[in-house]
Design a protein around this nucleic acid. Structure first.
Lengths: 131, 131
DNA sequence: TATTGACCTTCCATTGACTGGAAGCCTTAC
DNA sequence: GTAAGGCTTCCAGTCAATGGAAGGTCAATA
């Protein structure tokens, strides 16, 4: 199968699929005309990567997941550990974003938001020195 | 003031301060020996950038905020708009992360996490083709 | 048969926001 | 005088793609 069709099937841009080959996540064979020729296993692999990326795993984590996936004797605990770590990472990010938001919100709440130049948001960002 | 002291004052790494000069966010003068020499206004500017970056603004947004900051006739509404947009952006990110988390969590909840190889997480990532 | 137009190829550059490291001056303390 | 630490520039690398140029290939149509 040509790269364009694979792109449609996996909802990955062709550029990205070539990039994944570059970093050795997939190794499609080549047709006589030099075009990449994707077997079902390649497509499956790409779909796997697409899915794990969309779950927030980094490329290196995808690599690890793929190797676990291909290791028929892996312990499910290994996979679960990865998932749980990722959940904690997400939790940390959410907390950070929420504290950011509450700071911004309290700043915005104190700003008139009109034509006048007085602005507590800018004043806050400027800090002590600005006063 | 030398870059090292500025780094201490602003809690920005010296590397980052040089980078900010590179992208024209600050323009410190030079001492006779070629060292960068930061005036109070430069330090203040850097602190402003540090603060707006920590509030989640991109470098380009910092540039805009700086120009608003330096425009004594700006309307506070302009600043407030930026803050509110950033809040919405944060909201979107939080929602995305939370849906990611709930997906991962339900996957992890169904995984034994023991020595056996059966793993619903991997199975899910693998999708239809994997079954 | 010629020629479009859609596809494919490679290679190089760019993004954002830094960060790391090498090679080489400058300053300060002992 | 010499050693440590701070400063300089420049180049490369990070992550995960993405954009674009120059050119080869294929399928359908005029």
């Amino acid at each position: 199968m040509n790269i364009g069709d694979v792109a449609d099937k996996t909802s990955l841009p062709a550029k990205t699929i070539r990039y994944y080959e570059d970093i050795k996540l997939v190794k499609p064979s080549r047709a006589a005309n030099g075009y990449r020729d994707y077997a079902d296993a390649d497509i499956h692999r790409l779909a796997f990567i697409q899915r794990s990326r969309s779950l927030g795993f980094t490329i290196e984590e995808c690599r690890l997941l793929l190797s676990l996936y291909e290791d028929k004797d892996r312990a499910s605990a290994d996979v679960k550990t990865l998932a749980l770590e990722k959940i904690e990472e997400i939790d940390r990010k959410v907390k950070e974003l929420q504290s950011l938001k509450s700071t911004l919100k309290s700043l915005a709440d104190h700003c008139h938001g009109d034509d006048r130049p007085e602005c507590p948001i800018i004043d806050d960002i400027a800090g002590e020195l600005g006063r």
